[in-house]
Design a protein around this nucleic acid. Sequence first.
RNA 1: CGAGGUGUAGCGCAGUUUGGUAGCGCGUUUGGUUCGGGACCAAAAGGUCGCAGGUUCAAAUCCUGUCACCUCGACCA
Length: 480
Amino acid sequence: MAKQAKQEFVQHITPREENFSQWYTDVVRMAELMDYTPVRGCMALKPYGNRIWELIREELDRRFRDTGHENVSMPMLIPESLLLKEAEHVEGFAPEVAWVTQGGGETLPERLAIRPTSETMFCTMFAQWVQSWRDLPMKYNQWCSVMRWEKTTRPFLRTAEFWWQEGHTVHATAEEAQEETLLMLEVYRSFCEDVLSIPVFSGQKSEKEKFAGARATYSVEAMMQDGKALQAGTSHNFGTNFSVPFEIRYQNREGQLEYCHETSWGMSTRLIGAIIMAHGDERGLKLPPGVAPIQAVILPIAAHKGGVMEKCAEARDRLKAAGVRVRLDDRDNVSPGWKFNEWELKGVPLRLEIGPRDIENGVASYMRRDTFEKGTLPLEGLAEGVTALLEDIRRGMFRIADAFRLSRTQDVRTWEELGEQVSRGYARAMWCGKRECEDKIKDAFSATSRNMPFDQTPFADSCVCCGEPADKVMYFAKAY
RNA sequence: CGAGGUGUAGCGCAGUUUGGUAGCGCGUUUGGUUCGGGACCAAAAGGUCGCAGGUUCAAAUCCUGUCACCUCGACCA
């Protein structure tokens, strides 16, 4: 009776099927990933959410270095004149730029944009830094925050300020730039699938959906548990679109001046939103081990009894030594049951319990967050057992997400099928390539073209929208 | 940007219709008993009711404005 009464005061997460958006908001707040601030649309990352972002950064940064990139840091303010240099680019970003007009009490002679993205700043510097073919390729990246004055915002998915990385590279040839564009797309795909356990569709964006100023844009598109698409990362080939107005030229081996070919690519804190919506469940967050701030939590049971805390500390030290991110929850003011729920809400992949019974048997009890499966691991060799389980969880989470994605993806051949399919997931359709058809599909179903897979083998010969000859395979979906 | 909703203690809420300067639960602090799925007892601390005006002897409560957040939709690199 007392227990039941108690339950009523415990906050619960809105069920996913009842209201997915509310569920998302509940998880974000209850897992203590972020908090709202006095600045409209701008969030504060709390330690737990920030740690996830740090881990994402560490892993991506390693991959960027492995593919030959170096980090730089650019100013956060961009003079208006620079922003105006590439016509399509300004047009795309102008409506959502925040401006600085005063400094030191004086009105500035030229207003400064708070960067919505740094192409124009990078290009300006590249024009200075690139002289000869020997300087190329120049492959840089920066970690920073950017600002876009969005009308409506949602934690992690769309915020006025967000944290990201933007890679910017300069190449001598068009071929090399294209190679780089696809290489980074592949880095993104692999990161999503192998580290975050989120399967993605990677492919090329339509003209309508490509980046403002790009010659071609590629993306990795993830599927959320409500069937909607979330663009997880983009990679752009600019060709010479920016190098011409910014005069980024190099002297080739023959001594002639040539325009450079550029790329840019980015991933943001939006990935945290993707993790939540791709993996989360009725108990809250479910973190892939690769970016979990705590991969295994150790809970002492009957901590006051002899030997329990000692065994727990010993287990913690062993796991730590083996490189596992481990936390010993030695709080004595909350019960084990409370801790179970709290760590599940926070998405810790593996829970270990050590109590008198376990010590007697020389084991630790465990429960995996992904499947709720319980079992025991011998205390001798605990690190090996935990490492193996974490790896299995990583793979298991991918398999579950992948099965879901495939169950919600279908080829469609008719207008009706298209409308039906985008209400539950991704529709793979033949498309003629005309923008009017994209517009019409958006008007009718509020679905947009996501991307064109690299396998363009046609499975029908007419456009799903207009019925005219079509040779493009395109994924359509409702998107965040 | 449109429709609807919310804003009162760290969190979740009641109080607003019928104005009279706040109340409940959780949490927190201290002491004790507990500890294998959200423990219990006792004592204590903690808010001027999103913000700004107005009406009134008196405003959480009525009026006006404004800000923020949530849901649905529109828009959108």
